[in-house]
């Protein structure tokens, strides 16, 4: 289990977090759940995950700031997938500018997320 790839998931909707955790752990990944951007940054610094999933809009620290922190402060190229709600196209563009690798618009299908995660972690 120790060689399982680690994923940090930052999402303020706990039900969704739990669902994705189950789904991705079934695929053999190890999930670390953060409820907001602040927790996410702490986890990323501590565990150095192989992949980051983050919602754009979260309390305290937004997903954009998480991306910026990873790319500019930690200087890491960890792949990042962002979740966005309808109408946040502008934010998604910003996320890509900051260095996000992929995005999923909510509502999304968990199965599709698994496919994208696998592709990025191949």
């Amino acid at each position: 289990m120790s060689d399982a790839k680690k994923i940090v998931l930052a999402e303020d909707n706990s039900t969704l977090s739990l669902l994705l955790k189950f789904r991705l752990e079934k695929e053999g990944y190890k999930l670390l759940i953060a409820a907001d951007g602040k927790e996410a940054i702490e986890m990323i610094e501590q565990h150095d995950p192989e992949l980051i999933l983050t919602d754009i809009m979260m309390p305290f620290i937004s997903g954009l700031e998480v991306i910026s922190h990873v790319r500019n402060k930690l200087n890491k190229q960890t792949p990042i997938i962002v979740f966005s709600a309808a109408g946040q196209e502008e934010m998604v563009l910003k996320a890509f500018n900051l260095g996000a690798n992929d995005f999923m618009g909510k509502p999304f299908s968990p199965n599709e997320l698994v496919i994208r995660v696998k592709r990025l972690l191949r």
Binding site: M57, A85, A86, G87, Q88, E89, E90
Partner: peptide
Amino acid sequence: YKEILSST
């Protein structure tokens, strides 16, 4: 409010 905040 989440519904309007994102509206362009």
